[in-house]
């Protein structure tokens, strides 16, 4: 359990995020709102380094430095017209980070409890096929993590992956590295439906067994689902899909917060998920379209060609 003062700081950070969203909703306060949000994020990260017992400190600080320099340079140097695709890219890597955090969290008790019985040591990740676990090991795994946490973990792995691959496709479309026209193929809706059913089945299976391997397969199916979700969307509608994927990443982060029992991640992710949903609808509305017609319109011949 982290100290009370740190939890209070997390509350302050959460309030900063709420004020940031509020500020960003009005032209006069937008820029200040963004700065308040940045302050909240800085506070949260600094407090995390102090309050948790963080090992591997040098490596982590190096990784933070790499990400910070890369992010700041990218954001500073990008052409004004290329900003939407940069936002899409940032959203995608955020989703990817959430998915990785979930997979790692799942591997934690797996390494502690099951490693010895498979005899693969460091390669336990790849040896954790469902068949490798005995009944008692499975029940122990589910007992350690709890069904709620396992469900949230599977959700984060899936939705984070969808957001990652979907964002990459939106980036490619806006950057004109691929056609901005809707890409459809015969039976597309059925393939997409099949992938969703497979994801649901795998998700339930992951929760039942706590298997890391299954969770990785689930994440891979999520990558496929993200691609299939965005391909049929026309270029002019892409910004609305970026907003939708932004809300997805928010929800993935919220579920990650549930897994880590970190209230700040839960609040921040949920705020973005909820406000992102409202924003997506507002953006679609401003273009005189509905979100479902944007996502599935190409199959009926109603999407914009971009």
């Amino acid at each position: 359990m982290i100290p009370v003062w740190a939890q209070v700081c997390y509350v302050v950070a959460a309030v900063c995020f709420i004020l940031a969203l509020k500020g960003l909703s009005s032209p006069k306060t937008a820029r200040r709102g963004n700065l308040v949000g940045a302050f909240g994020a800085l506070l949260a990260v600094v407090v995390t380094f102090i309050a948790y017992d963080i090992g591997n400190l040098g490596w982590i600080l190096l990784a933070v430095a790499v990400g910070a320099v890369g992010g700041a340079l990218g954001a500073r140097r990008v052409a004004m017209t290329a900003m939407p695709q940069l936002v899409a890219l940032f959203n995608g890597v955020g989703g990817g980070a959430a998915a990785l955090v979930a997979l790692l969290e799942l591997s934690e008790p797996a390494r502690a409890g099951i490693e010895r019985s498979t005899g693969f040591g460091d390669f336990a990740w790849f040896a954790l096929l469902p068949g490798d676990l005995t009944e008692s090991e499975i029940s122990r795994m589910v007992e350690i993590l709890g069904t709620g946490s396992l469900t949230a973990t599977a959700f984060t792995a899936l939705i984070g992956s969808v957001s990652f691959s979907g964002s990459v496709i939106t980036f490619l479309k806006l950057q004109e590295l691929m056609t901005g026209r809707p890409i459809t193929f015969p039976g597309g809706p059925f393939v997409f439906g099949g992938v969703l059913v497979a994801a649901l089945g795998l998700g339930v299976w992951t929760v039942a067994t706590g298997s890391v391997t299954l969770a990785i397969v689930l994440a891979l199916v999520g990558l496929l689902a993200g691609v299939l979700l965005v391909l049929p969307v026309g270029g002019a509608d892409v910004p609305i899909v970026i907003s939708l994927l932004n809300a997805f990443t928010g929800l993935a982060v919220a579920a990650g917060g549930y897994v880590l029992e970190n209230a700040l991640l839960l609040v921040a992710g949920t705020l973005v998920g909820a406000s992102g949903t409202i924003l997506t609808r507002a953006m679609a509305h401003a273009m005189g379209r509905s979100v479902s017609s944007i996502l599935f319109g190409a199959f009926k011949g109603g999407s914009t060609a971009g």
Partner: peptide
């Protein structure tokens, strides 16, 4: 303000960094 708000909300969920640091710190 649709696009800046989306971008700002996008930045906020980057706070998953907290989760990544916690996981990396116990690896």
């Amino acid at each position: 303000l649709h696009t800046p708000l989306m971008s700002g909300a996008n930045a906020i969920h980057g706070v998953i960094l907290v989760g990544a640091v916690i996981v990396a710190g116990t690896a």
